Measured scan of single mutants.
Amino acid sequence: MKKYKITVYDEKTGEKHTIEIEMSEEELEELAKKLAEKHNVKVRIEKV
C-alpha cells in the first residue's frame, strides 16, 4: 500500500477538499471514479 493525496474539487460551489490516504492503487482508482460519478466533482491524485 502506498500513501496518496486526494484533492476533490466541486466546480459549482468552488469547494476544494484534500485528504491523505493509504491504500492500493486499484482501490484508489475505484474510489476516485465513484467520487467523480456520484458527486460530479473533479478528483486529482498525487503520490506522497
Rank of each mutant, 00 (worst) to 15 (best):
E27I: 05
T13P: 00
M1G: 06
R44P: 01
M1W: 06
S24K: 08
K34D: 06
K47W: 09
K42F: 03
V43D: 01
H17G: 03
E22S: 09
Y9M: 06
K33V: 08
T7G: 00
K42H: 07
E30V: 13
E27V: 05
L31Q: 02
E26V: 12
R44H: 15
D10T: 02
V41M: 12
V41S: 08
N40Y: 05
E22H: 08
H39N: 09
I45N: 01
I21H: 02
I6F: 03
E11V: 13
S24A: 07
D10R: 02
K16A: 12
V8D: 00
T7C: 07
Y9T: 07
I19H: 04
E11Y: 14
E11Q: 14
A32C: 14
I6K: 00
E20D: 05
E30I: 10
E30M: 13
G14Q: 04
E15L: 13
Y4Q: 00
E37R: 13
E20T: 11
R44M: 14
V41G: 14
K47E: 15
T18C: 08
K38S: 10
A32S: 10
V8P: 00
E27A: 11
E20K: 04
N40K: 06
E29R: 13
E25R: 07
K38Q: 11
K33C: 12
E37L: 11
D10K: 03
K38F: 11
K5A: 04
V8T: 07
M23I: 14
L31W: 14
E20H: 10
K42S: 12
R44S: 14
K16T: 15
Y9F: 08
Y4E: 00
K34Y: 15
K12P: 02
V41R: 07
A36Q: 10
A36D: 04
S24D: 11
R44L: 14
I6Y: 02
S24I: 10
K2F: 15
E11N: 08
A36C: 11
M1D: 04
Y4H: 01
I21P: 00
I19F: 15
E26Y: 12
V48K: 05
V43N: 01
E22N: 06
K3S: 03
V43E: 01
G14R: 04
N40W: 09
K5L: 06
K2S: 14
K34A: 10
K3Y: 08
T13M: 03
Y4V: 02
E20L: 13
I19R: 03
E22I: 11
L35W: 11
E15V: 09
V48S: 06
K33L: 08
I21V: 13
K5Q: 04
K3H: 05
E46I: 09
R44E: 11
M1T: 10
T13K: 04
V43A: 05
L35A: 03
K47R: 12
K12V: 12
H17A: 06
E20Y: 15
R44Y: 10
K16R: 10
I45W: 05
Y9P: 00
K47P: 13
E22M: 10
T18W: 05
L31G: 00
H17R: 08
K5D: 00
L35E: 01
A32Q: 10
K2H: 15
K2N: 13
E46Y: 01
Y9W: 15
K2M: 12
Y4I: 01
E11T: 15
H17F: 15
H39I: 11
K5G: 00
T13C: 04
E20N: 05
A32G: 06
G14F: 04
K42I: 15
K33P: 01
K12I: 13
N40A: 07
I45Q: 01
S24E: 10
L28P: 01
T13H: 03
A32P: 03
K34M: 12
T18G: 02
K33H: 11
E22P: 01
E22G: 02
I21C: 10
K42Y: 03
K47A: 15
E15Q: 10
T13I: 02
E26W: 14
L31Y: 15
E15C: 10
D10L: 04
E29K: 13
L35R: 01
E25Q: 10
K12E: 10
T18Q: 05
E46K: 04
Y4F: 07
K33N: 07
E20P: 01
L35K: 01
S24M: 14
K33S: 09
E37M: 13
L31A: 03
K2W: 15
H39T: 12
L35Y: 09
N40H: 14
I21A: 07
L28V: 14
R44Q: 11
N40C: 10
V43Q: 01
K34V: 10
T7Q: 03
E29H: 13
L28F: 09
E37F: 06
V8N: 00
E30C: 07
I21D: 01
V41F: 11
N40S: 08
V43R: 00
L28M: 15
T13V: 02
Y9L: 07
G14S: 03
A32L: 15
K33F: 06
I19P: 00
E26H: 12
L31C: 09
T13S: 06
E37N: 11
K3G: 01
E29Y: 15
K12Q: 10
H39F: 05
K34L: 11
L28W: 05
Y9V: 06
K42A: 07
K47T: 15
K38P: 06
D10P: 00
E25Y: 08
E46A: 05
D10E: 03
L28K: 03
I19C: 14
K38N: 14
T13D: 02
I19G: 01
K16D: 05
A36R: 14
H39R: 10
M23S: 07
N40D: 09
K2C: 12
I45F: 05
E37C: 11
Y9K: 02
D10W: 10
E26Q: 10
E46F: 01
V48N: 03
V41D: 05
G14T: 02
A36G: 10
T7N: 02
K34W: 15
E27K: 08
Y4K: 00
I45S: 01
M23E: 01
E27S: 09
E22Q: 06
E37T: 13
T13N: 05
N40M: 08
E25N: 06
R44D: 08
E25A: 07
S24H: 13
E11I: 14
I19M: 11
G14M: 04
T18D: 03
G14E: 02
E46D: 07
I19A: 03
K3D: 00
T7R: 01
D10M: 04
V43G: 01
S24W: 11
A32D: 03
E15W: 14
T7F: 09
E29T: 11
K12C: 13
V48L: 07
E20A: 04
K47G: 09
K12Y: 09
Y4C: 01
I21W: 05
R44I: 15
D10Q: 03
V41I: 10
E46H: 05
A32M: 14
H39M: 08
E20S: 05
I6R: 00
K34N: 08
L28R: 02
